[in-house]
Design a protein around this nucleic acid. Structure first.
Length: 366
RNA sequence: GUGCCUAUGGUGUAAUGGUUAACACAGCGGUUUGUGGUACCGCUAAUGAGGGUUCAAUUCCCUCUAGGCACC
């Protein structure tokens, strides 16, 4: 299922391959985010050009819309959205954090209010696994409790107890729903910035046994240094032969530093969200060192008269042919094409970043 | 031509005889970490011109200018 081809001697980075029912994925990898079954603004022709090896979607959001009836008619999310590759679905655990104002935690599960109509929905571990089973996602996540990493330690401990309890229940439910184990199930380590809690969390998950282990509850309020500190001690204790997933991270330099600490998988809204706000990512060079990349806010006035290609080095014809002045114009008038072009640029950047990292590991330079 | 009305940032509108003239949009920057983000946060920017009353006028009065409406 997971094979490591090369381990760095310069860092804890590893390059490998993760096998899913829908395809193989080279690690380390980055998952573009399609929370509601679409990478915002992109269609499948765009995805075909970008060719991500895996994308990420979301249980909570797809359950509310379009709902399981529709998805099950299509026998899964892949057919529904016309995307044949692997999909990882998040469980709704992050929404415990992001939708903190409209949810209630109980031992049974999380009661969310719909962001559409305010109706209440109880997400239990069993239900979350059922939803992911209907979505038929290749990698499924346990329902966890993600809190602000600066929360009181008593709250973090309670959240962790629930996360462990629910992880067990998710595993049991998954075994019933997917007895042949076609899809993978990942556990999620919580515990905030508390080393004891983090190690206890990992230990409990290891007993349950998952196909991979995710680090949750980071990049939610703490400093970069605090985040790296957690990775420094935590990854050392994580199994070598299972993929390690740092959830929700991050900026290019966060990813590089995490890969060097032994992380294999990432996802983040940054490239797609920032694209829609006009911030574009570009390589200065392929070194992965110092200032190897830059961002440009295409909304800035100076781009109104910049007649260079949006991205001369892109594999995407539109980014080679359209100028920055034109993209500036599209942003000023708010045309959807602006958001699409910027999203294409940033996702291509992130996917290229991961290819460069993978290659650098294989070449012993990372 | 006569009468009436109006005149506040780039635009559309508030407010007031007395601290720093408010809001929205536009403009100029910035923020964004398992997507409630078409979002959020800053900044710039105005009382048509001239005169008068008053301790103090964007506010009250007069003239001019411009625009609108009505009448001729």
């Amino acid at each position: 299922m997971f094979k490591i081809n090369k381990k760095s001697i310069k860092s804890r980075a590893r390059a490998g391959v993760l096998k899913t029912k829908s395809g193989k994925i080279k690690t380390p990898f980055f998952m573009p985010i399609a929370t509601r079954g679409v990478i915002k603004t992109l269609g499948f022709e765009d995805l075909r050009k970008l060719n991500p090896e895996i994308i990420l979607s979301n249980t909570y959001h797809l359950y509310l819309r379009p709902g399981l009836k529709i998805i099950s008619k299509f026998k899964g999310l892949q057919n529904f959205m016309n995307y044949p590759g692997p999909i990882l679905t998040d469980s709704g655990g992050f929404q415990v954090f992001s939708l903190a104002k409209i949810r209630k935690l109980t031992k049974k599960g999380v009661e969310f209010q719909s962001t559409y109509d305010g109706s209440k929905h109880l997400f239990t571990p069993q239900k979350v696994m059922k939803i992911q089973s209907v979505l038929n996602s290749d990698i499924q996540m346990v329902l966890d409790v993600c809190l602000d990493s600066k929360s009181k330690s008593k709250d973090l401990e309670n959240a962790l107890d629930l996360t462990i309890l629910w992880a067990k229940k998710c595993k049991q439910a998954k075994q019933k729903l997917d007895p042949q184990n076609k899809n993978l199930l990942f556990g999620i380590i919580q515990g905030g910035l508390n080393k004891n809690l983090r190690l206890r969390s990992l230990e409990s998950l290891l007993k349950i046994d998952f196909n991979g282990y995710a680090i949750g509850g980071l990049a939610v309020g703490e400093s970069k240094e605090e985040m790296y500190k957690v990775l420094d001690y935590l990854v050392l204790e994580m199994p070598d032969n299972k993929p390690r997933y740092l959830m929700g991270v991050g900026y290019p330099d966060n990813i590089i530093k995490a890969v060097k600490r032994g992380v294999d998988m990432f996802d983040c809204v940054i490239p797609s969200r920032e694209a829609r706000h006009g911030r574009l990512y570009f390589f200065n060079n392929a070194s992965l060192k110092n200032k190897f990349y830059r961002t440009e806010n295409i909304n800035n006035r100076k781009f109104s008269t910049d007649f260079q290609a949006i991205n001369a080095n892109s594999q995407i014809l539109e980014l080679q042919k359209y100028t920055k002045a034109y993209l500036y114009h599209l942003f000023k008038i708010g045309d959807p094409l602006a958001f699409r072009l910027a999203t294409l640029n940033n996702i291509e950047f992130y996917l290229d970043l991961m290819k460069n990292i993978h290659q650098a590991i294989l070449e012993g330079k990372f």
